[in-house]
Design a protein around this nucleic acid. Structure first.
Length: 564
RNA sequence: GGGCCCGUGGGGUAGCCAGGAUCAUCCUGCUGGUCUUCGGAACCAGCGACCCGGGUUCGAAUCCCGGCGGGCCCGCCA
């Protein structure tokens, strides 16, 4: 059995068109099959070949539709508007879809892929100077959804967080801590320590001697002062602990954290600088080395005049490290990084190592009132959004289940609240800008996480009431059954599309559509009170729906409650 | 000044990469319905949109050029 229930039908459609084209017109060229939209599963537009064949598109479509018993009963074909429409036999497709899902269970969605192509996705990588605000959360949610979707699709993938613990802002944090911090954190570290960071920034802005102190520290750090490196790393790690906690609340974890300071300490940054200096393109201006791009239009400086490294130089060292550990890289980044990454890629190309890097850029999140900034302590913090979402969810849960005990209600409210936050970020195309609005972030109906979770809980409830049942022959004939089964069959192709395009919002849309189809089925087609002989097939369909909803929610990092 | 991205009903959004036909998707909103329920965070019907102007094409929301509006970038910062 194919892991993708739609695949055998697509193969027959290709085979059918190919043989009909040859038979009727002697055409043996390659051709394209399109998705058939609402009308059919697959469509062949006749426009390209009709002129050459000397017939109208509609004539050609009519002729091509005359293959009796299309593809051994796998397909139904029809001609309309110059298109040859082909649909998988609904009966055969529905049986194949449910059968495949029940066989693969949590693995459903996976496809055969060439082995050995390990991927590495870098995401989040927030500067550890303060708590995550909602803008940074977008990166984390998109990145984690990508990692989860790739895994569900059968890709071997690791996730990584690049910790910037040597940059200017971490020095400011460190300096602020030495000045104002008494050693007692007394709360979530990112929230507590950022106060010293904000205060330090305020002081530096108006006090020149403070600014000079920080500059000295920065110089010392870049010259490789080990005690100072340890100090800034410690400061970064404390804040990072708080960020990790926030990420955990969002069901986000990373396989590995790479510290920028390590790349300096073990000499890799120095090695990169040496390699770059040897490039024929490399030039020098007052001791500062750069690569000229676009003539001398854009200079990419990779050292300062004092020989120390710059951010992108260290990032190149990091990318070389990643390339040594994975076959293919993806960086999830804000759109402000585009130009810098162009220089990075072109530099890696000069070093002969650029091939396997892809980027997933996303636009910024803004507030109705303007921009966010950790440095100035303005922004909506993700911890606040999560806790507000949970408490509103709890009100909703208790409204519907007043008898439910406190612990269960809180646990469900947690899944619903976090799900709502993640879903409302993941549903958007990454390149569209996002204006954060509380009402939208906390939406619990319509196109939302709870809508999907609720469908899942309903399916679980039916299955629980049914108990165990005979898994005999299955078959479907009701329109709502066939439509739902077809929807389930589409999951592997959605994931394959994401593997190709990284368009993670598609798995959000798919989950929503699947839930909607399930709700329609649920409304119209009785399961537990099914007519004689239909019970097993319908329970199988409900179980398959439950599995697909769970798998899709898993891609989104949203828990699938059995009851809510 | 130069570069990149975005512009779809009242609000939000899919479709654009690989141009096609059928009501251009879905959510929200508004109007009106459904159900003696396998859990109503539900279901059904209706209202309402491709920024503007050229071009390519048999055919453009989709590709190209030019406007307009918004975001981001153009540092020996990160």
């Amino acid at each position: 059995m194919s892991m993708d229930p739609m695949k055998p039908f697509l193969d027959s459609a290709v085979g059918y068109v190919s043989s009909m084209l040859r038979e009727a017109y002697g055409i043996e060229d390659t051709f394209r099959i399109e998705p058939g939209g609402e009308i059919a599963d697959f469509a062949f537009p006749c426009f390209q070949f009709s002129r050459r064949a000397g017939v109208s598109p509609q004539e050609m479509a009519d002729r091509l539709a005359q293959g009796a018993e299309a593809a051994g009963g796998m397909l139904t074909v029809s001609a309309r508007g110059g298109y040859l429409n082909m649909s998988a036999s609904p009966h055969k497709l529905s049986v194949a879809a449910v059968g495949t899902v029940l066989q693969m269970q949590r693995e459903y969605g996976r496809a055969d892929r060439p082995p050995g192509e390990r991927m590495l996705v870098e995401h989040t990588s927030i500067n550890p100077t303060g708590p995550m605000h909602i803008g940074r959360t977008r990166n984390a949610v998109i990145g984690d959804t990508l990692v989860r979707s790739l895994r569900q699709a059968g890709v071997e993938v690791a996730s990584e967080y690049y910790v910037n613990d040597v940059g200017k802002q971490v020095v400011v944090l460190y300096w602020g801590l030495t000045k104002f911090f008494d050693g007692e954190i007394g709360g979530k570290p990112d929230h507590e320590l950022v106060r010293h960071y904000v205060r330090a920034n305020e002081l530096i802005e108006k006090d020149e001697s403070a600014a000079a102190e920080v500059r000295d520290l920065q110089q010392k750090l870049e010259s490789g002062d080990t005690a100072l490196l340890a100090g800034t790393r410690k400061a970064a790690e404390m804040v990072l602990d708080g960020i990790k906690e926030s990420l955990a609340h969002l069901n986000i974890t990373h396989d590995r954290f790479v510290f920028e300071s390590d790349l300096i300490k073990d000499g890799r940054v120095k090695g990169v600088i040496e390699r770059l200096k040897k490039l024929p393109e490399a030039s020098e201006d007052k001791g500062a080395w750069y690569l000229p791009f676009n003539g001398e239009e854009d200079r990419f400086y990779f050292t300062r005049s004092d020989g120390t490294s710059l951010y992108t130089t260290r990032d190149i060292a990091y990318h070389l490290d990643k390339l040594s550990r994975a076959g293919r890289l993806v960086d999830v980044l804000g759109e402000d990084q585009k130009l810098g990454m162009k220089f990075l890629v072109r530099t890696l190309e000069l070093l002969g190592e650029a091939k396997r890097i892809d980027f997933l850029f996303h636009s910024f999140v803004s507030l109705a009132e303007g921009k966010m900034s950790t440095r100035h302590g303005v922004g909506v913090l993700v911890d606040d959004v999560i806790s507000e979402a949970k408490s509103r969810a709890k009100v909703e849960v208790l409204k519907r289940r007043p008898d439910m005990n406190e612990g269960d209600a809180s646990s469900i409210a947690g899944m619903v609240g976090v799900g709502a936050v993640r879903y409302n970020i993941a549903r958007l195309q990454a390149e569209k800008k996002l204006v954060f609005k509380w009402e939208e972030a906390l939406n619990f109906e319509g196109s939302s996480a709870p809508f999907i979770q609720y469908s899942h809980a309903r399916a679980c409830s039916i299955l629980e009431k049914a108990g165990s049942w005979e898994k005999g022959e299955i078959s479907y004939d009701e329109d709502n059954e066939l439509r739902l089964a077809r929807q389930l069959a589409l999951f592997p192709s959605v994931l394959s599309d994401i593997v190709r395009t990284f368009a993670v919002h598609k798995v959000a849309a798919y989950a929503q559509q699947t839930a909607a189809e399930f709700n329609q089925f649920y409304r119209i087609v009785p399961v537990l009170r099914a007519p004689p002989g239909r019970l097993g097939s319908r329970l199988a369909l409900v179980d398959a729906s439950r599995i697909v909803l769970e798998n899709a929610l898993c891609c989104l990092g949203i828990d699938a409650p059995r009851t809510m």
